[in-house]
């Protein structure tokens, strides 16, 4: 889904050249004036943005926008969601229809530059992986020599797969299908040993199988798909707010601050890092144009990064995605926040 949008993005890039520069100015002021954050999310992706039983937009991408709303207004509910298809998403951001695009968008250089966008960070390190039957007894993708792999035809997934096997001097038989559901069915029927796709999709695919527990996602990630929120060029103040909203959530997890204990910690903590972060010491909120206790609001209402992850895609959700690359830097992952001082 993410890949097919490249051509559309390139086509619109030229048109955006004149529209893209026109948006200097204070997004923050505009947001404060209208009273809510307008957030572009996907039109349905398990765990990232989807509608729950009560009609609320839920998911990791949606929660990031809630966190920004909590930072700006102290109220995580002051956010409106615009569902966007892959083709519409950049135009919607460029034309000012939305303030943040949080729609599992892969961070690439051309999007960051030619499209006039700024990626504020990485909410989820995704990448292509493998889902295989446990019966194979395979623990690593390196053991897949000679396997038959189900793939979706015509995607970059196919090319990544070929590259990976060639680089590791292994052979494989590709079996192409048009739809991911078809390849899952084919794997269940034993037509192939495993299937490959982005890891976040593999976990969703696994739930749909008749016996999900018979299948595992291998730990190897063979391509880079860093997904993150996006804002327009030309408003650094807003860029900073969105960027640091994610960072403070990561920092909060590192310091052990959760939605439950953060209000208490703001009063009682003696750790100078925590005191600075929560606004108990210094006037850091002012630098952002936000309230001094904005971090408390973010963490109390939306949670730290780990809580957000677990609730939407991790162990607290049906998807049960492992933290993997998305663990904190001091636990073997890549999530790292610069110092808050």
């Amino acid at each position: 889904m993410r890949k097919s949008s490249h051509s559309a993005a390139v086509v619109t890039a030229a048109l955006l050249a004149f529209a893209g520069t026109a948006h200097a100015g204070a997004t923050l002021d505009a947001v404060k004036k209208k009273g809510f954050v307008q957030c572009g999310v996907s039109d349905g992706l398990p765990g990232f943005s989807y509608t729950d039983d009560k009609g609320n937009v839920s998911g990791l991408d949606a929660d990031l926008c809630r966190a920004v709303a909590a930072a700006v207004f102290g109220d995580a509910t002051k956010v409106k969601f615009t569902p966007l298809t892959a083709k519409e998403r950049f135009t919607a951001l460029q034309s000012g229809e939305i303030d943040i695009l949080s729609r599992n968008t892969t961070w690439t250089s051309s999007r960051d530059t030619a499209l006039g966008l700024n990626f504020t960070g990485v909410t989820y390190y995704d990448g292509q992986g493998f889902l295989v039957n446990k019966k194979l007894g395979v623990k690593s993708a390196k053991e897949l020599d000679g396997a038959s792999i189900c793939i979706q035809a015509g995607t970059t997934t196919e090319l990544n797969l070929a590259d990976y096997f060639r680089a590791n001097n292994m052979k494989f038989t590709p079996i192409s299908y048009d739809k991911s559901d078809e390849s899952a069915k084919a794997m269940e029927a034993g037509r192939c040993d495993g299937l490959t796709s982005d890891q976040s999709q593999l976990y969703a695919q696994r739930i749909k199988l008749a016996a999900p527990d018979d299948y595992i996602v291998l730990p190897e990630v063979i391509s880079k798909e860093p997904l993150g929120p996006v804002v327009r060029h030309g408003d650094d103040e807003w860029f900073d707010i969105v960027k640091w909203t994610l960072y403070v959530q990561v920092a909060a997890e590192e310091y052990g601050l959760t939605s439950k204990n953060v209000a208490e910690a703001a009063k009682t903590s003696t750790n100078p890092d925590v005191k600075r972060l929560l606004g108990a010491e210094g006037e850091k909120g002012k630098d952002f144009g936000l309230a001094n206790d904005w971090v408390v609001n973010v963490v109390r209402q939306v949670g730290n990064y780990g809580e957000m992850f677990n609730r939407n895609v991790g162990d607290g959700s049906p998807l049960k995605i492992k933290r993997g690359l998305n663990a904190l830097w001091n636990q073997g992952g890549l999530q790292y926040a610069p110092p808050f001082r």
Binding site: P46, G47, Y50, T51, I207, P318, L319
Partner: peptide
């Protein structure tokens, strides 16, 4: 709406 509901992790499949 139906497609949207079908991607809710609680109702996948």
């Amino acid at each position: 709406s139906i497609q949207q509901a079908a991607v809710d992790p609680n109702w996948l499949g």
